[in-house]
Amino acid sequence: MPDRLTAETPFVRRARRTNRRVRLFCFPHAGAGASAFAAWPALFPPEVEIVAVQLPGREDRVGEPHPPSVEAAVRTVAVALRPYLQGPYAFFGHSGGALMAFELARALRKRGTQPRHLFLSGQSAPGHDTPAPELHRLSDDDFSAALLGLDGTSDGVFTDPDLMKLLLPTLRADFTLWENHRHQPDRPLPVPITAFGGDTDPRAPVSGLQAWEEQTTGAFSLQVFSGGHFYLNDSEAELTMIIGSTLLGREPANAGRGERVR
């Protein structure tokens, strides 16, 4: 059973499964690339095939221009993933990746296809964001300090000037993309949604996670873990167990705290 993500197209890093029942597309947080999900293939049952999405400007695509808008990014990704949207599939996204997954699902509805499930992590529902300063407008020093406060990047990154010089443009471009995005209301999706978050995350409080219930006419559940914005760094095994069990129709253990199900 292959447990390694392999590049198949500029956008797709896939761990191919011959007995796949469902394909899970994974969208990383701001500044991150497909390698954020490098460990995931080994954590899922063999019936779940992991596809990590690599956007321009990330990792091995660092020299490519960043998308000028969320709308442009969604259109491009929808076309790039079209050959892989055969059979049952689902989306997972963390932080800005959750918004990408949600907006892509809305765009795909117009094309006659929908994911089986949306797993949205570390991100408040549209219209329920906690007021916060726009990070992309900060100076490099203040921007780096704000990112360090999210606990999503190793401290060593911020003490390595060469690495920061490489990463800052991508990080700033991603925050610019999402902080300038204005949600356009539409009817709820006919897709079950599971929201995940950390109980001390100031960027995605429980009330903002619960508000995803407004965006679906299907089932909704909420799992709250101990931790902040990057709670999943310490809860990867539990998180992936819940997702895999949900996709395969198995009864998941209550790994998160404060589970709420509609």
Rank of each mutant, 00 (worst) to 15 (best):
A105M: 06
Q86L: 09
L177E: 03
Q210M: 13
G87V: 08
R58Y: 04
W40S: 02
T200P: 05
R14E: 00
A125P: 07
R82T: 10
T216F: 10
A132D: 09
Q215F: 15
L177A: 06
R106I: 07
A78C: 10
M241H: 15
A195I: 02
E64W: 09
E59C: 09
A30G: 14
F44Q: 11
R20G: 02
F158R: 04
D174G: 06
T217Y: 05
M100F: 14
L171A: 02
H183F: 14
P252G: 08
T159D: 14
N233Y: 06
F11H: 14
F27E: 03
D162T: 12
H94L: 06
G87F: 09
V74Q: 01
R17G: 03
E179A: 07
D60H: 12
R17F: 07
P190A: 15
H66E: 13
T200I: 12
T18W: 12
V224Y: 02
D186F: 03
E8M: 11
L189R: 09
S144P: 00
G96H: 02
D162P: 00
A219F: 08
G152Q: 03
P46R: 13
G227S: 06
G208V: 04
A38S: 13
P169I: 06
S154V: 08
P190Q: 10
D3P: 00
G63V: 06
Y84C: 06
R109M: 11
P115W: 04
M164Y: 07
W212V: 03
A80I: 05
T9D: 08
P46K: 09
A145E: 13
T113F: 00
L166H: 11
D140Q: 11
L120P: 04
D155E: 15
